[in-house]
Write a protein that binds this DNA or RNA. Sequence first.
DNA 1: CTCTGTGTTGTTAACGTTAACAGACAATGC
DNA 2: GCATTGTCTGTTAACGTTAACAACACAGAG
Lengths: 356, 356
Amino acid sequence: MPKSTNAGRATLKEVAELAGVSLMTVSRAVRHPEVLAETTRKKVQAAIKKLNYIPDDAAGDLSSRKSTTVAVVIPSLHFEGHARTLDGLSSELRKHGLYILIADSFYSRSEDAELLRRILGRRPAGLVLINSAHSSEGVEVLQSAGVPVIETWDIPANPLDSVVGFSHAEVGAALTTHLIDQGHEYITFLGGPLDTDPRGNERLAGFKRTMTERGLDASRVVTVEQDHLTINAGKIGIARVLDRFPDTTASICLTDRVAMGAMMECRRRGVSVPDDLALTGHGDFEFSEHLVPSLTTTRIDAFGIGVHAARILHERITTNSMNDTERHVDVGFEVVVRDSSQAMRPSTRVKQRLHD
Amino acid sequence: MPKSTNAGRATLKEVAELAGVSLMTVSRAVRHPEVLAETTRKKVQAAIKKLNYIPDDAAGDLSSRKSTTVAVVIPSLHFEGHARTLDGLSSELRKHGLYILIADSFYSRSEDAELLRRILGRRPAGLVLINSAHSSEGVEVLQSAGVPVIETWDIPANPLDSVVGFSHAEVGAALTTHLIDQGHEYITFLGGPLDTDPRGNERLAGFKRTMTERGLDASRVVTVEQDHLTINAGKIGIARVLDRFPDTTASICLTDRVAMGAMMECRRRGVSVPDDLALTGHGDFEFSEHLVPSLTTTRIDAFGIGVHAARILHERITTNSMNDTERHVDVGFEVVVRDSSQAMRPSTRVKQRLHD
DNA sequence: CTCTGTGTTGTTAACGTTAACAGACAATGC
DNA sequence: GCATTGTCTGTTAACGTTAACAACACAGAG
């Protein structure tokens, strides 16, 4: 057994000794095997296998002044879309030998700068921010980070650096337009605590703008403080909507989870969706198309956001040129019209009992 | 601007020069400020602030022969429970200054060993495996990793090392017992492709064992190949259940997502849950209690699994003693009985229309 | 038979940090 | 007054790797 301090793991040196070559030859056998003479290569590879040698990437990074990690700052993994973006990032970054270091930031804004500093201590090659907002100190840290920073899931007014996202205001506007086009006039916006959710606020702004443009009442807004964007918030919220604005015929819910909570509560109360109340969500979650009635929503290419961010990152890491054309990407969104927001077609109504 | 190669970031050396002290004094100012004289400490801290110095953890790890990363191998982030476990891990590990390195392994089993080798290249202090199975080569890599390995979400027959999980067979058995106690005799197990899902298989085994013990037919099993554990699989699967075993009065679904798909399809077909067909799931997802009818399921303390794993890991990293008492933890589970599996109480039935 | 490449391997000096020890100096005990 | 202790800071040698360059052998060209 090697008396290495390195948790018993073999090092370049030990492999080199066993194979009877120099350190660099072993290093080359790992990274550029093609430059070695075949006999040497085989000898070294045998030694590597025998000792179960795994190169220490951190030491390699240090020596070569490169970095093989990308840090991802994410508020919560409980949101399907974020998980999909992470998948997209991961699958694309893997192709380039980059690892993902996770920083979930779902706590107080005040620790924000500290978290970012800690993560920068790992010397990541770049940072991907998923749907996150930062304190002014945090922004300062990011600006002096010296590595590419990619903000995703939004198109902020003052981007730090690169951006891959979509317009939340347009999402709000598109859903509102859809409902108005369906003949609705009394539309209530159902959201979470909007002061801590800039994106929700933008969607609300899109709603208000569109309602006003169409000459309708844009002031019908209900928020739920306790739960943030949960199914439960929708359940509580829709009760308030029905209470405060009983003539509401359609409600725009901040996310699909909120919409689901609303829909279930409607069912419990015997309020028919969409006949008594039309509902829309946002995000196109897995369950959304399966609900009865199926949920009208907006679909975001969450995986694509991750892939896009990864590509931009990779390009910016390898080439030093800042190709401005690709610095800001709007991936758009798609309004998916389903049963919850339109007069039901017979084919989608509850079917007859089976086997009769 | 410093001419450092390190992406413009300040190093110990630059801070030392600015403060007029040695490297070690700066290092101490960061890690053990209490040993320095107050005047020195302030001088150094001012220099650190001025240069925006952030220590390079990788270099520190290398020099001190420690590691500040923990690698997490996770099959998919799309499962709520996994995300919660990751949260638990993260929040507990953060207390000890440990970072999480993510390896999502949701691809072919053959790449398995390669992925593990790559992750070990980061020299993690430990490995947490969430709900994962490995090829024999992968197992070999793990065994020679030389760091603590914690398997979670299951209690495997042959653990590699530490374990934090629960018995899937008991889950299957408990749900089956519950349904039998409700008076059901014709129970169908609805699962995914079981050959690639050892845990699903165990739950199935628990089902079969219990059915047989109670003298009931244990052979009613329906699997769906296309989709794995999705809502859609439940939708497709329940159709097969009703088709192949029309006298079924209760169905045990592999997960809550499958159960939801089943429930929605039932609604579409006019099959009443639970009156015509009782349903159970597994996992207690966010939506489960909100469905109408609410879903009977098993609840796992997913966050707690993460916290537990983090504690074991931390103990094993800091003390070299292998405290055997805590090596294998069964966190258990809880059967949550809701409306989908019992004769409905009036209070939970669909309420009267609102405002009338 | 020297010259010039070409293909292959080795040597040295970093990368940014820390552990271990060494030294300087002041305060204390006898 | 002199050794002894304690407090603080500095020096040296690593950690495991890679970039850059040096060195060597051997082939073919002239």
